Simulated scan of single mutants.
Amino acid sequence: MEKLKFFKFQGTCYYALIKAVDSTHALELYDQLVSKIDTKEDEDNLISEMAELKLSEVLKEMKSYRDSGDTPLSDSTVLDWISDNSIFLLGIDGSLV
């Protein structure tokens, strides 16, 4: 399996933290798992709001995540999600949950 990278979408789009092979794959996952990308303009906006994160930035980002009981995620949960190559959507806008 290829090494996965981390992509953060934030701005006028819905927030998402996605693990993907590359930026194209990240856009496909955003379209499938977060919000439909309907137009070329939508895609261009997403691309401008997408940032590739380093692992240290992902860990910092996920430290603010909370579970359904409003409890911060444990370090072991965060590490499990990051290392599990079957999980691609690490975080999503709370209004979509």
Rank of each mutant, 00 (worst) to 15 (best):
S86Y: 06
D80C: 13
L4Y: 12
S64D: 11
Y65S: 14
Q32W: 06
N85D: 13
T71G: 02
L33E: 11
E49P: 01
M1I: 07
R66Q: 04
L79G: 06
L55T: 14
D22P: 12
D84G: 14
Q10G: 01
G94I: 05
S23Q: 09
H25M: 03
L53N: 07
L73K: 13
S35R: 14
I18Q: 06
E43S: 04
E43G: 04
Q10D: 07
I47P: 00
D42F: 05
L17K: 03
K19M: 12
K36N: 11
I18K: 10
A26W: 11
M50C: 01
K54Y: 08
E43R: 13
F7D: 03
G91A: 13
L29S: 05
Q10K: 11
N45I: 00
V34K: 00
V97Y: 05
T77C: 13
D31S: 10
L46Y: 00
I92K: 07
K63W: 01
V21E: 05
L73A: 04
N45T: 02
K54V: 12
Y65R: 11
E43D: 01
I87H: 11
Y65H: 07
D44T: 12
F9K: 02
E57P: 14
D44I: 12
K8H: 12
K54L: 09
I18D: 01
E57Y: 05
L46A: 01
D84P: 10
V78E: 14
D93R: 00
S56Y: 12
D80E: 15
L59C: 03
S68K: 10
L90P: 15
A20T: 10
T39S: 14
Y15M: 07
C13P: 08
L4D: 02
T24Y: 03
E61V: 10
E28G: 02
F6M: 11
V58F: 03
E2Y: 06
D38L: 05
T24W: 08
S95H: 04
S48F: 01
L90G: 11
E43I: 07
W81H: 14
S83R: 14
